[in-house]
Design a protein around this nucleic acid. Structure first.
Ligand SMILES: [Mn+2]
Ligand SMILES: [Mn+2]
Ligand SMILES: [Mn+2]
Ligand SMILES: [Mn+2]
Lengths: 228, 228
DNA sequence: CTATTTTTTTAGACAAGACTAAAATTTTGG
DNA sequence: CCAAAATTTTAGTCTTGTCTAAAAAAATAG
């Protein structure tokens, strides 16, 4: 085995964010994109990219962004696994709301222990998805993405869809969804798309009929169930 | 309310260790004692003591050690509460051994969340002692010390005592105690103290008769039950 | 009570991770 | 294609927490 890499919290965060920005297509990630997401200045990003490149965790070419190496990616996935398992723990064992867990998980994801995460996984009975519907990587780093997920904002009118994920970045969105009774697993009937602002006339199955702004609809992942 | 103090992990560790070294009698703590326990150089300690004194978390006088202020003490106790609750979680929910939890708890004790620790406390059903028999401070920072605890090394011969705590600092001690079947709550019959090396001839009630070195006996806390 | 030893502090340095300002490179629009 | 704009990098600074070496103060021993 190679020597034990001990990364700082900061380095771990960079790897995680590079992974997230590069998406499933594994695109190269630009300096500015990282600066935005990490709330730091571009110059700080450049410094860190050099450091990560020295450690062979990313590929980096001046003025051309970066991409994770195999090693960097496996560390990123490990952090994401920890983050999502902790979120699941907080919601299902400590009864946190889904809007309250992300910030705490940002801290917990950096706890280093050979044993802890696998025990936690077992304790939670090997959950496949976190409280926001995002897939939890398994012990070997495999991520099972939902095949047919689309944004609610893009679903056709006169269809029934099921909510499979919500973007976790905004606490106020999550609170709003709580208020209107929209959860993972909710059925949503999409009746009409208002041309003026792209908002949707919908019915939450078993709940209310209402309008959802396009912005909200862009932050909800759904899968098609049937035509109405 | 005063402004939210955000301390670094390092600052929190210093406060915790000052609290631990100063003991129940709240003695002043010397620079070298801190350096030993924190595995840093005395010069680093001096630097940090100045910083903590500036923040009114300790009283510090040159060449005369330090002591916690009320504010510093309440932060120290909070860290210790978190540490011991996490250790309890690891043992009672994730089935860690008592020798495996301290290092992980050293990390977990720094997780900042208004809600997390109280939820965890509730989830664990408000435990009074951690896996090593140390008292867990309550939400308000009150610590209920066991009144009549003594070191096994100091107990009289021909007595029956009960194990109420073990020093957690050495993982190898804890493993050894596992091996010989000595747990919290075990009864111990103390038969004889060997003058040559201070070792004790004992019987673990329900277990084996054996000799314990003085060093081991110094690391076990017991309470007197009865004369034999 | 003074000389030696021990403890503690000061001074100066360094690495990590951030920032600002300025320079270099790439991209874009006419 | 070229000038202006946007992006990225470099250079230099700062803070935190650590270190070593040297100086200062306190404790100890004869
Ligand atoms: Mn999250
Ligand atoms: Mn999540
Ligand atoms: Mn511990
Ligand atoms: Mn303990």
């Amino acid at each position: 085995m190679a020597k034990e890499e001990k990364l700082t919290h900061s380095e771990e965060n960079y790897l995680k964010v590079i992974f997230q920005i590069s998406g499933q297509s594994r695109d190269r990630v630009s300096t500015n994109a990282l600066a935005d997401k990490l709330c730091t200045k571009a110059s700080s990003i450049t410094d860190m990219l050099k450091k990560l490149a020295d450690k062979k965790l990313i590929g980096y070419k001046k003025y051309n962004g970066c991409e994770l190496t195999t090693k960097g990616e496996s560390i990123a996935v490990e952090i994401i696994r920890k983050h999502r398992l902790w979120e699941t723990f907080l919601v299902s064992k400590l009864s946190f709301g889904w809007d309250e867990v992300h910030d705490v998980a940002e801290q917990l994801e950096h706890i280093r222990s050979l044993k802890l995460i696998d025990k936690l996984d077992q304790f939670l009975d090997y959950p496949k998805f976190d409280p926001h519907g995002d897939p939890i990587p398994d012990k070997d780093g495999n991520i099972t993405y939902r095949k047919s997920k689309i944004r609610l904002a893009e679903s056709a009118v006169n269809t029934l869809v099921e909510v499979v994920s919500v973007d976790e970045d905004s606490q106020s969105l999550l609170k709003y969804l709580d208020e209107i009774g929209l959860k993972l697993g909710s059925g949503i009937k999409v009746f009409e798309r208002i041309p003026f602002d792209g908002s949707l006339k919908i019915e939450i199955v078993g709940g209310q009929k209402m309008y959802l702004s396009e912005k909200v609809a862009e932050n909800i992942g759904v899968r098609f169930i049937e035509k109405l």
